[in-house]
Amino acid sequence: MDDAGLTERLTIRRARADDLSACADLYVRVLVETFTWLPADRHRREDFLRAARDEEIYLAERAGRLVGVAGFYRPQNFLHSLYVTERGHGVGKALLNHVARAADGPLSLKVQAANRRAQAFYAREGFTCAERGRDPGSDIDWLRLVRG
């Protein structure tokens, strides 16, 4: 089956309160699988759930299965999180485009400097680096990317 066929059956919608637990589980699972440069115990569902209080959470489903989640902080047009289980099948792009349509200005995000795969994805989607930094008290370097 081609990517276009997979994407056609993808549903994206705003998460309801009863979806957030499953979204938090997906968040942790994807972080543990892909952020291999960090200890697995550093990824906690509580972090996602705390951020979700102030964000719009969107989810992607295919055939009734949760396959992606995005957290959008509207006051800053900031994509706080984008995690998918089916990488390479258009899920991330579909969630990103959905959030970009919801934004009322240029979309920005932070990506960890070690996350080369995500940087390549965002570059393909038209994002450019606007800033480099490290949060106070953190040991993780990040890039702030913007798509105007």
Rank of each mutant, 00 (worst) to 15 (best):
L6P: 01
H89C: 08
E125G: 06
R9V: 10
L6V: 06
T7M: 15
G137C: 11
Q76G: 07
D19R: 02
I57E: 01
Q112C: 00
P39G: 02
R9I: 10
I57A: 02
L59W: 10
G64N: 07
D139N: 09
G90M: 06
A118E: 11
Y58A: 03
L107D: 04
A24P: 03
Q119S: 03
L20M: 01
Y73A: 12
A24T: 04
L20H: 05
A130E: 09
A103E: 02
D47F: 00
A114S: 07
R101I: 02
G133C: 05
L82S: 08
A70E: 07
D54R: 13
S81D: 10
D25A: 15
D3P: 01
F121K: 01
R53P: 01
E131N: 04
T34P: 10
Y83P: 05
W142Q: 04
P106M: 10
V28I: 12
N97P: 01
Y122G: 00
L20D: 01
A100G: 02
A52W: 09
L38P: 04
L20A: 02
W142L: 00
G92F: 08
H98Y: 11
D47V: 06
A52V: 09
A24H: 07
D104N: 12
S81H: 11
R44I: 00
H43I: 08
G5E: 07
Q119V: 02
M1W: 06
L6Y: 12
P136F: 03
E61Q: 14
V28Y: 14
Q119T: 01
F35T: 08
L109D: 01
R9H: 13
Q76H: 12
G5T: 09
V67K: 11
R124K: 14
P75G: 08
V91I: 06
F72E: 01
F48P: 04
L49K: 03
L6N: 08
K93G: 09
D18P: 07
V69L: 06
D41N: 15
T36M: 13
L96E: 09
L20Q: 04
E86A: 15
R9Q: 12
G137H: 12
F72R: 09
Y83V: 03
R132Y: 10
H98W: 12
V30D: 14
Y73N: 10
R147W: 06
A63W: 00
T85N: 13
V69E: 05
C129E: 08
R87S: 06
I57F: 02
L49W: 03
A15I: 03
A113W: 06
R44F: 00
A70N: 09
A123V: 07
T85H: 12
F72V: 07
G126L: 02
K110F: 06
D3Q: 06
V146N: 01
F48N: 05
A22L: 10
A24R: 05
P39K: 03
L6C: 10
L38I: 11
V28K: 13
A114P: 01
A94P: 09
C23Y: 06
C23D: 12
A4S: 15
